[in-house]
Design a protein around this nucleic acid. Structure first.
Lengths: 191, 191
DNA sequence: CGACCTCCTGTTAGTCACTAACATGTTAGC
DNA sequence: GCTAACATGTTAGTGACTAACAGGAGGTCG
C-alpha cells in the first residue's frame, strides 16, 4: 500500500495543464473559437483524456472550489446572528481572501464566466448548488423554504456585486461593492 | 405589397405546430431523448425549418411572453410604493392571472423547465433579461446598482416560490407561496 | 400571359461537443 | 515475471447547429 503519489501527482499535473491551456486559449481566441481538440493537443493529450478529467468543456473553467470555504466561514459565525448577516460576513471573508491573493486572476475568471454565453448557461446550476450549500450551512438538517429564500436572495445580491465589478472592469474594489450590495438588501427594507 | 395575412398566418401556424409537437414529445419521451429531427417531422417540416423558427432546441419551450405583462403591472403601481412591494404586487397579479387561466399548463411548463438540465441552463439568461426589464420598469432611464440588486433579490424570491411549487408537485397554491416567499424576504429583516 | 423577384423551404455537407467499445501500454502487488 | 488495474489512445458513432445552394409558390410588372 505504498500509495505511490507518483500516479496521482501525474494526474493532478495533467488536470492542471488542461485547465491552464484551456484558460489561455479561451482568453486568446475566445471560448467558442477554441475546440476541445485544441485544448487537449496543447496539453499533450487526446480529446478523450480531456473528457475523462472534465465532463464538459465548460468545466475546464468552472471548477469552483470556493464553496467549502464559504460553508466553513458561515459555520464559524455564531448561529445567533441573522442568516443574511452570517452569509454577508462569510462572503466578505471568503471572497475577500481570494481577492487579496489573486485579484487579477479572479477578475479574468469572473469576466470570462459572465461574458461567455456558454459559461453563463452553467451559472444557474452553480447558483442552485451554492444556494443549497449555503442554506445547509445555515441550519442543521434540511433547510426549509424560508432559509432557501434568504440564501437565494443573498446569492443574487452577491452576483449583482460581481456583475458590477466586471462592468466597471475591476476598477472598483470588490469587497466594497459587496458591502454596498448587502447594505442595499438590508436598507432596501427600511426606506 | 398586399402581403396577405395568410402568409403570416401560415408561419404562425407552423411555429405553433412546432411548439406543440415539441412540448408533446418532450413530455412523452423526455427532452434529451427527443431530437429536433423528430420534432420537425412531427410538425411536417424539415429540421432546417425548425431552426429558422427557433434558434435552438430549447427555445421551442422557452418562448417567455410573460415579461411585458410584468412590466405593465409594475408600472401600474404607484411609484411611491417600495420597489419590492411593487414587484411583489405585479408578480402576484401577472402570474396570478396566468395561474387562474392555465394552472396545469403552467405547472407542466415550469416543471419541465426546472427539471431539464438543458433548459435550466437557459434560465440564467432569462433571469438576467427579466431582471433588466424589472429594474427598467421601476425607474426612468438606466437602473442603478441598488435597483438591480433589489430586482435580483425579488426574482430569486419568485424563483424559490416556483421551485417550491414544483417540489410539492403543484399541490400548494402558487399565489400563496409567492406571498409567503415575499413575506420571508421582508420579515427576514425583522426577526 | 410570361418574365422576374422575393420568401419559404428542403437538400446536402459540413463542424464540434460528447459518448461508447475496444485496443494498448504502463504500473502495482504478488 | 505475471496478472490485474488503470490511464490513455483509436475509432466510430449521435445529435445540435450552420452554410451554400436549389427549387417552388405567391405576388408584381411588363
Amino acid at each position: 500500500m505504498a500509495e505511490p503519489h507518483w500516479r496521482e501527482r501525474k494526474k493532478a499535473q495533467t488536470r492542471q495543464r488542461l485547465q491552464e491551456q484551456a484558460s489561455r486559449l479561451f482568453i486568446e481566441r475566445g471560448y467558442d473559437a477554441t475546440t476541445v481538440e485544441q485544448i487537449a493537443a496543447a496539453a499533450g493529450v487526446s480529446h478523450m483524456t480531456f473528457f475523462r478529467y472534465f465532463p464538459t468543456k465548460e468545466d475546464a473553467v468552472l471548477s469552483d472550489s470556493y464553496d467549502p470555504l464559504l460553508v466553513a466561514a458561515i459555520q464559524a459565525r455564531p448561529r445567533s446572528e441573522h442568516p443574511v448577516v452570517r452569509i454577508h460576513a462569510a462572503v466578505r471573508e471568503g471572497l475577500g481572501a481570494i481577492y487579496a491573493a489573486d485579484r487579477e486572476a479572479l477578475l479574468v475568471r469572473v469576466r470570462l464566466t459572465l461574458r461567455t454565453p456558454a459559461l453563463r448557461a452553467r451559472l444557474w446550476e452553480n447558483q442552485v448548488a451554492t444556494r443549497e450549500l449555503l442554506a445547509g450551512a445555515l441550519v442543521d438538517g434540511e433547510p426549509d423554504f424560508a432559509t432557501r429564500i434568504l440564501a437565494s436572495a443573498c446569492l443574487a445580491t452577491l452576483t449583482s456585486a460581481l456583475e458590477e465589478w466586471v462592468a466597471t472592469d475591476g476598477s472598483a474594489e470588490l469587497p466594497h461593492l459587496i458591502d454596498d450590495a448587502f447594505a442595499v438588501l438590508r436598507e432596501g427594507w427600511r426606506p
